[in-house]
C-alpha cells in the first residue's frame, strides 16, 4: 500500500488522544467510521515534520491488521481501522509520545491518505505524551547482629533501591539516575530486572529522573523494612 500525507481536512478528524494508565490503552475522538494512524515516538518527539519520510518508509507494508509496527528505532506506527475499535486501542508502553492522524484507505487504488491533524489545541490534542510512572523505594540496608540474649539491627554499609514497578518496554538506560554527593550514577534496565540494587555508601542516594519521560510516583503501599542478607 502507498501512503500519502496531505493537509488536514475538516471532514476527517481524530483528536483528544488520551492514555488510560490503568489499562495501558489509548483512547481518542474521531469522526464516525474514521480510520486512524497512530505514530509512537520517543517522549516529546513530534513526528509531524517527518510525516512525508514516514509515509515513504511505510510504503509496501500492510499495517492494517498488525499491532504497533517498529518502523525504525524509537518510532512505531499502528493503523486502526474504524471497525477495529473506532475510539481506542492497546498502547505500546509508556515513556513515549503518541500522535494520531485521521486517514482514509482505498482498497481499490491501494492508497492510504493520511491527513495532518488540526492545529493542536489546549483542550483537545492529537498528541499524547505518556511518561513512565515508576515507583521505587530507597532505604538503608540493615543486618541483624546477634548477641547472647538479644539481637539488634545495625547498618550494613549499603543503601538499597527497590524497584516496585517494572520499567516497561520503552525505558532507556539512564532515564533515572541516583545522586550521591556530586556524582550521578545511571539506573539501567538490568537494575530494574534485578528488582533491587545495593549501593555501598553511608549517604542516602537520591533518585532523579533525567528526562520528562519518567515520573516518580509514591509506592502503592509502605513495604516492610529491608532485611538484607547482603550485609557483611
Amino acid at each position: 500500500m502507498k501512503y500519502l500525507y496531505r493537509i488536514g481536512e475538516p471532514a476527517y478528524y481524530a483528536t483528544n488522544l488520551t492514555w488510560d494508565s490503568s489499562r495501558g490503552s489509548l483512547e481518542w475522538r474521531s469522526g464516525r467510521g474514521q480510520d486512524v494512524l497512530i505514530v509512537q515516538t520517543a517522549f516529546g518527539v513530534n513526528p509531524i515534520a517527518e510525516m512525508d519520510a514516514i509515509c515513504k518508509e511505510m510504503e509496501g507494508i500492510d499495517l492494517r491488521f498488525s499491532a504497533f509496527y517498529p518502523l525504525r528505532p524509537k518510532l512505531s506506527v499502528r493503523f486502526v481501522n474504524a471497525k477495529q475499535g473506532a475510539t481506542g486501542c492497546p498502547g505500546n508502553g509508556e515513556a513515549c509520545t503518541y500522535t494520531i492522524f485521521p486517514c482514509v484507505a482505498n482498497e481499490e487504488t491501494d492508497e492510504c491518505v493520511i491527513y495532518a491533524p488540526a492545529q493542536e489545541q489546549r483542550v483537545s490534542s492529537p498528541v499524547c505524551h505518556v511518561p513512565l510512572r515508576v515507583a521505587l523505594e530507597v532505604s538503608q540496608d540493615m543486618w541483624i547482629q546477634k548477641f547472647l540474649w538479644h539481637t539488634r539491627e545495625i547498618p550494613s554499609g549499603f543503601y538499597c533501591i527497590r524497584f516496585i514497578t517494572p520499567c516497561g518496554e520503552n525505558y532507556q538506560d539512564g532515564f533515572l539516575e541516583y545522586k550521591i554527593g556530586d556524582y550521578l550514577i545511571p539506573i539501567t534496565r538490568k537494575m530494574f530486572e534485578s528488582h533491587a540494587i545495593y549501593i555501598h555508601t553511608d549517604i542516602k542516594p537520591v533518585v532523579i529522573p533525567r528526562t520528562n519521560a519518567v515520573t516518580l510516583i509514591e509506592p502503592p503501599r509502605k513495604p516492610p523494612a529491608t532485611r538484607s542478607k547482603r550485609g557483611f
Binding site: 549499603f158 533501591i161 550521591i180 556524582y183 550514577i185 537494575m191 534485578s194 540494587i197 545495593y198 549501593i199 555501598h200 555508601t201 547482603r230 557483611f232
Partner: peptide
C-alpha cells in the same frame, strides 16, 4: 564503589 555491584 558507588556503583551497584551485582554480587557484592
Amino acid at each position: 564503589s558507588l556503583f551497584p555491584i551485582r554480587e557484592p
